[in-house]
Lab assay of single mutants.
Amino acid sequence: MAAGGDHGSPDSYRSPLASRYASPEMCFVFSDRYKFRTWRQLWLWLAEAEQTLGLPITDEQIQEMKSNLENIDFKMAAEEEKRLRHDVMAHVHTFGHCCPKAAGIIHLGATSCYVGDNTDLIILRNALDLLLPKLARVISRLADFAKERASLPTLGFTHFQPAQLTTVGKRCCLWIQDLCMDLQNLKRVRDDLRFRGVKGTTGTQASFLQLFEGDDHKVEQLDKMVTEKAGFKRAFIITGQTYTRKVDIEVLSVLASLGASVHKICTDIRLLANLKEMEEPFEKQQIGSSAMPYKRNPMRSERCCSLARHLMTLVMDPLQTASVQWFERTLDDSANRRICLAEAFLTADTILNTLQNISEGLVVYPKVIERRIRQELPFMATENIIMAMVKAGGSRQDCHEKIRVLSQQAASVVKQEGGDNDLIERIQVDAYFSPIHSQLDHLLDPSSFTGRASQQVQRFLEEEVYPLLKPYESVMKVKAELCL
């Protein structure tokens, strides 16, 4: 049975990233139509530049190519590739079939990587351009969430054990800070992308030097003109047959890092959902379990974690691919890159769409948070109580021993009897502590235990987050809708 299948058929496997999760716009960027249309555009740009620099290419040939950029006979191309065992030459023939007058000058002087690699770089750039505003929107939604809850005390956790208090907004800023680093890295790697350009079979530009009869300047002009037509500021000066596969490492490393950030955020949300302090959106008709109707599973956060793990592992592909590119190139890269580049971007696209949807509907339960604080705060307040007693004339050592005994009794009630923490009640009825009984409410005010959390939130948002989001103001209103 021949390899390949009808990918629109229910009898043929289709990647869930495309069929179930990723956005239509990201799927289109990695589609065959987008790819092969870009090949034709690159052939047109090459012909236009070659004509401008004096090669015998007519206006009629150029116009014929322009008129057929979208006229792609995919069936013919597939048949040609089956016959020739070469995808680029299959599309040269297919393009030439609908451009008979231009057929002889299509791909003039070029090698397969002229269309293959340059198209990949265009796709990487455009895919990054799709991700950047999506990530900015996630940051914006979380920034709104953090600002609104900047002063809401909550129990902090280290080692997932109760620690000092923080605020809900401050905790959210930990998430935002990681995503801001990801946004900066995505922008950097996007701006650092260079075009492969017009380089020939081993990167020496020998074929173009021959076409222009040894004119170095025209060869350099050709490279520059096509690079500018493709919208790049610069091209690699040095290439082998391909652009260095280190570029793929750079791009997928940034995406993998984004995956790590999203995994951490969504894990926190899942843990908070278990504590009943916070939940992701839950639709009115949504079913959490087929057997347990009360369940409210954090399905979206779980999906993000599941896909983020996949995204983090994909960076190993370009690392290994770059390491086995012998001399000017081997074909070890080809099949692998067809999979890992598309999957990385479709996965990143999915987790950003999902995280935006989550961040637009996060639900906080202040009463649950308050109750958990009441359970733990008495123990945390013991040092403040000791200091207040010393100020009232008591002995630190005597007070410490009193607190120690009462704390152990209260802990026994919590752990052995399943009761509430009654340390404060014990202190309130103990005559030894009568000098500070009137101060206990103040000493137990949760806001006095959150330090500068709310001020940190305000400063972080104003100095770091809002300036970073400013270039994306025009796209901030787009909502994230999930079908599944």
Rank of each mutant, 00 (worst) to 15 (best):
residue 232 F to N: 02
residue 446 P to A: 07
residue 321 T to Q: 09
residue 325 Q to D: 05
residue 104 G to S: 12
residue 476 M to G: 15
residue 335 A to V: 08
residue 282 F to G: 11
residue 318 P to D: 02
residue 200 G to P: 03
residue 64 E to R: 08
residue 437 H to D: 06
residue 161 Q to H: 04
residue 404 R to D: 00
residue 228 E to L: 08
residue 50 E to I: 06
residue 18 A to H: 11
residue 363 V to E: 05
residue 476 M to C: 15
residue 173 C to W: 02
residue 173 C to N: 00
residue 377 L to A: 03
residue 230 A to E: 04
residue 51 Q to F: 08
residue 240 G to W: 00
residue 111 T to L: 00
residue 360 E to V: 09
residue 149 R to A: 08
residue 484 L to N: 15
residue 250 E to C: 12
residue 385 I to W: 03
residue 309 R to D: 03
residue 274 N to H: 15
residue 416 Q to C: 10
residue 418 G to N: 02
residue 438 S to T: 15
residue 459 R to H: 10
residue 434 S to M: 12
residue 118 N to L: 01
residue 71 N to H: 10
residue 437 H to E: 07
residue 283 E to L: 11
residue 35 K to S: 06
residue 173 C to F: 01
residue 28 F to D: 08
residue 103 A to L: 10
residue 481 E to Q: 13
residue 235 A to S: 09
residue 278 M to L: 13
residue 255 L to N: 05
residue 338 R to E: 03
residue 371 R to A: 03
residue 382 T to I: 09
residue 219 V to N: 05
residue 188 R to H: 14
residue 210 Q to I: 14
residue 448 S to V: 14
residue 177 Q to E: 15
residue 280 E to I: 00
residue 91 H to V: 05
residue 222 L to I: 06
residue 269 I to K: 00
residue 69 L to C: 15
residue 281 P to M: 12
residue 293 P to L: 01
residue 352 L to K: 04
residue 426 R to K: 11
residue 4 G to S: 14
residue 244 T to F: 02
residue 445 D to E: 12
residue 98 C to H: 10
residue 432 Y to I: 06
residue 247 V to R: 05
residue 136 A to W: 05
residue 227 T to D: 01
residue 208 F to D: 05
residue 74 F to P: 09
residue 284 K to L: 12
residue 39 W to R: 00
residue 28 F to P: 01
residue 259 G to D: 00
residue 327 F to V: 13
residue 457 V to Y: 04
residue 272 L to W: 08
residue 257 S to V: 06
residue 288 G to H: 05
residue 142 L to Q: 04
residue 131 L to T: 08
residue 197 G to L: 00
residue 292 M to D: 00
residue 414 V to L: 06
residue 91 H to Q: 15
residue 226 V to T: 08
residue 434 S to K: 13
residue 123 I to G: 08
residue 93 H to P: 01
residue 345 F to P: 02
residue 224 K to E: 10
residue 43 W to E: 07
residue 294 Y to T: 02
residue 59 D to R: 09
residue 204 T to G: 14
residue 459 R to W: 10
residue 457 V to F: 03
residue 46 L to D: 01
residue 307 L to C: 15
residue 439 Q to W: 05
residue 153 P to R: 02
residue 260 A to S: 11
residue 215 D to M: 11
residue 262 V to I: 09
residue 388 A to L: 07
residue 436 I to M: 06
residue 144 D to C: 14
residue 113 C to K: 05
residue 101 K to A: 11
residue 479 K to D: 15
residue 74 F to N: 14
residue 147 K to G: 09
residue 78 A to V: 10
residue 247 V to M: 14
residue 434 S to D: 10
residue 311 L to W: 01
residue 131 L to W: 00
residue 148 E to Y: 06
residue 243 Y to T: 15
residue 275 L to E: 05
residue 45 W to N: 15
residue 66 K to V: 07
residue 48 E to L: 07
residue 121 L to R: 01
residue 329 R to S: 01
residue 433 F to V: 04
residue 56 P to C: 09
residue 66 K to I: 13
residue 55 L to M: 12
residue 200 G to V: 00
residue 302 E to W: 01
residue 370 E to T: 10
residue 75 K to V: 10
residue 258 L to S: 07
residue 397 Q to F: 01
residue 226 V to L: 15
residue 37 R to T: 09
residue 341 L to I: 13
residue 366 P to C: 02
residue 388 A to T: 06
residue 118 N to V: 00
residue 4 G to Y: 15
residue 202 T to M: 06
residue 420 D to A: 03
residue 6 D to Y: 09
residue 293 P to M: 04
residue 209 L to W: 12
residue 445 D to A: 15
residue 478 V to G: 14
residue 289 S to V: 01
residue 354 T to Y: 05
residue 387 M to I: 05
residue 28 F to S: 06
residue 187 K to S: 12
residue 426 R to Y: 09
residue 420 D to G: 04
residue 211 L to Q: 10
residue 114 Y to D: 05
residue 245 R to M: 01
residue 98 C to M: 09
residue 222 L to N: 02
residue 74 F to R: 11
residue 333 D to H: 04
residue 95 F to I: 06
residue 445 D to K: 09
residue 351 I to E: 04
residue 359 S to H: 14
residue 200 G to K: 00
residue 148 E to S: 13
residue 163 A to T: 02
residue 426 R to E: 06
residue 475 V to Y: 15
residue 473 E to I: 14
residue 73 D to C: 13
residue 405 V to C: 14
residue 221 Q to F: 09
residue 112 S to N: 04
residue 59 D to Q: 09
residue 107 H to N: 00
residue 413 V to Y: 11
residue 323 S to Q: 03
residue 359 S to E: 06
residue 89 M to K: 01
residue 208 F to C: 08
residue 165 L to A: 00
residue 149 R to M: 14
residue 8 G to V: 15
residue 482 L to N: 08
residue 148 E to V: 10
residue 106 I to H: 04
residue 351 I to P: 02
residue 18 A to V: 13
residue 390 V to D: 03
residue 161 Q to L: 01
residue 429 V to Y: 06
residue 439 Q to V: 12
residue 133 P to Q: 13
residue 427 I to V: 12
residue 298 P to F: 02
residue 68 N to Y: 13
residue 65 M to V: 12
residue 301 S to I: 13
residue 264 K to N: 01
residue 199 K to G: 09
residue 190 R to C: 11
residue 368 V to T: 09
residue 294 Y to F: 07
residue 137 R to N: 12
residue 265 I to D: 01
residue 446 P to Q: 03
residue 425 E to Y: 13
residue 396 R to F: 04
residue 289 S to Y: 01
residue 69 L to I: 14
residue 296 R to L: 08
residue 215 D to T: 11
residue 208 F to Y: 07
residue 319 L to K: 00
residue 131 L to K: 07
residue 390 V to F: 03
residue 175 W to P: 00
residue 368 V to P: 03
residue 46 L to I: 06
residue 369 I to F: 02
